[in-house]
Computed example of a mutant assay.
Amino acid sequence: MNLPERLQSVRKRRGLTQRGLAELSGVSISLIRKLEQGERDDTRLETLRKLAKALQVPTSALITSVAPEEPSEDWGPLRAALLKQAGQVAEPPTVNGVRQALTASMPLFSNDRYAELARLLPPLLRDADTLGPEGREVRSRLLHHVGWLLTQTRQFEAADVALRRALDESSDRLDAAAVVNTRCWLLMRQGDIGGALALATRWADEVEPRISRATMAELSAWGWLLIRLSTAAVRNNEPGEADDALRLARSSAVAMGAEYSPDADFLRAFGPLTVAMKRAENAMVEDRPDQVISMAEKIPTRDLRPTSNNRNRHLLDVAKARVQLRQYTQAFDVLQGVRGSAPEWIVNQHYARDIMGTIVTRRRTLSPEMREFAEFIHLDL
């Protein structure tokens, strides 16, 4: 069934009228009517979660797949190289040469320099594909980062190809776990909460270390899978499961003592601050803006440059909390700060668009800066 049929069916089985569901969920009756009549196809996960909670079902019982963005032509060469549809390599590359090129590109990934990556990655992928079995490790790592980038820019089908290839090429259990972590995030962005929850649970059990003997890399791999498990569970109206997973993730982070941020792979950065940001994210999902602000005041986000994506996502939660507390100027200041440090990142965030859209609808007038920002993130006024 599609969303209108699912929502109506579950509501009737619960013996609720549309008005009754509106009162229980806090979602307007007009929106519920539009959803059941199929007049809205851009429903936010936040809304579906509220409806599912009121209906006492997992969010995954209502959610439908999320449509990917229509990619710009700038990404065409990267997708062609990923599918091995590009031309021949003029000069035979070496494993060491590809590894050095990938290492040199890490600042572009961690600083969200998408335009430069779109030009750099196609020839690098072609080089990696010619290396043969001896290039397996570097090829897996490159494909993993490509999959992460394509997920970030909502090119879901291509991201799935890259991550499946990366997993096939992975050389050990921790490499595979890192790829699975990103794949869980992809499933979440596609709307497959149940799939992300099941995958994270299975792999967290698979790589659970003995904490007293674990390396930083092992603790990071396990901790991240627990984080994915927690963020999926809280969105699926399973707060107990979410809390349990987050508690275990925190125990992993405490054992590490500090943020683990390997120079060669920012996707594996993990530690106490990462867990703190994800705690705040869960609080925002559960509509606890006061707690989000309280938690955020204890997180030194200026020191999180190697994990800019997680830091910026956390700052959007802070902006969202400010909006819910009717602190619109402060919320906008947070959005502007994220734009200043990651302009190419924020343009790809529907969450930022939703937050700014709420500011626009609730303020009587908009400052010139607000209008310019709305135009920058492609928000129709």
Rank of each mutant, 00 (worst) to 15 (best):
F376G: 10
W345F: 15
S367M: 04
E372W: 05
R363A: 00
R363E: 11
V360Q: 07
M356W: 03
D354E: 15
L381E: 13
T365Y: 15
P368A: 10
M356G: 01
A352K: 00
P368H: 08
T361P: 01
R362G: 00
E344S: 10
V360E: 07
M370C: 07
L366T: 03
E344W: 09
P368W: 07
R363L: 11
I346T: 03
G357Y: 01
N348Y: 09
T358S: 08
R339M: 14
A342E: 09
R353Q: 15
L379E: 11
R353G: 02
F373N: 07
H350L: 13
I355E: 01
M356K: 00
I359F: 02
I377E: 11
L381I: 13
R371Y: 06
Y351D: 05
G340N: 12
F376D: 09
L366I: 07
I377A: 08
V338K: 03
V360L: 11
I377V: 15
T361W: 06
T361L: 11
S367C: 01
V360D: 02
A342C: 11
E372H: 08
R363D: 00
I346L: 13
H378G: 06
E344Q: 15
I359H: 01
T358N: 05
A374H: 08
L379R: 09
H378Q: 12
F373L: 12
L366H: 06
P343Q: 11
Q349L: 05
I346A: 04
G357W: 02
I346D: 03
T358R: 14
I355F: 00
V338L: 06
F376Y: 14
R371M: 12
E369L: 12
P343A: 08
R364V: 05
I359Y: 02
V338Y: 03
Y351K: 11
P343L: 07
W345Q: 11
R362P: 00
E372A: 15
D380N: 12
L379V: 15
F373A: 07
A352C: 15
L379Q: 10
R371L: 14
A342G: 06
V347T: 14
P368M: 08
A342L: 05
